[in-house]
């Protein structure tokens, strides 16, 4: 499993979610690859992030298995991760 997090330096929601994702994924031993929409627009657009940031995409190999968009609370994220990380 690997996670890609698309965000921007100017985005308050990305700052808020950064700590939540860092903690959750570190505990589960999953590395997060950060892609900044302004610094690496081509790479970011490759993931078709849409217009709301941040976007977290979870891959199982090359297959996208989960996409979380915007600000979410920890409980909601855990619920969506349920089954995927077991």
């Amino acid at each position: 499993m690997r996670a890609v997090r698309i965000g921007a330096m100017w985005c308050p929601s990305c700052l808020i979610m950064r700590n939540v994702y860092d903690k959750l994924f570190k505990e589960r031993g999953i590395a997060i690859e950060d892609v900044d929409i302004d610094l690496s627009p081509a790479a970011a657009n490759g993931y078709q992030p849409g217009i709301i940031l941040p976007v977290l995409i979870l891959f199982d190999g090359e297959k996208e298995v989960l996409r979380i968009v915007g600000e979410k609370n920890k409980k909601e994220i855990l619920k969506r991760l349920e089954g995927l990380l077991s």
Partner: peptide, 14 residues
């Protein structure tokens, strides 16, 4: 459904 930062006017932002 989703609340976050809306990506608009990228040229001006850049």
């Amino acid at each position: 459904k989703d609340v976050g930062c809306e990506v608009t006017t990228p040229t001006r932002r850049q």
